[in-house]
């Protein structure tokens, strides 16, 4: 009996995972390009788009 309960429980969680996985895969991935050059900029060094955070390759 305990084995059946354990098996049913695991099955339930696996179904939960598969459901969320499928729903996640069906959700469209965002297709955005952040225009760094176009950013007017607050010149805050903490911002991820601040020019100082660009690698040499990106800067070229």
């Amino acid at each position: 009996m305990k084995f059946l309960i354990a098996f049913g429980f695991i099955l339930l969680i696996v179904v939960l995972f598969i459901t969320t996985y499928v729903l996640n895969n069906r959700t469209e991935k965002p297709d955005i390009d952040i225009d760094i050059e176009g950013c007017g900029g607050c010149h805050n060094i903490n911002c991820g788009h601040h020019p100082t955070h660009l690698t040499n390759k990106e800067a070229k």
Binding site: I10, L16, F17, T20, N24
Partner: peptide, 13 residues
């Protein structure tokens, strides 16, 4: 582990 994996899928979504 399975509960955490499901939650992460949800957060990603």
């Amino acid at each position: 582990i399975l509960v955490i994996a499901s939650l992460v899928q949800f957060v990603e979504m």
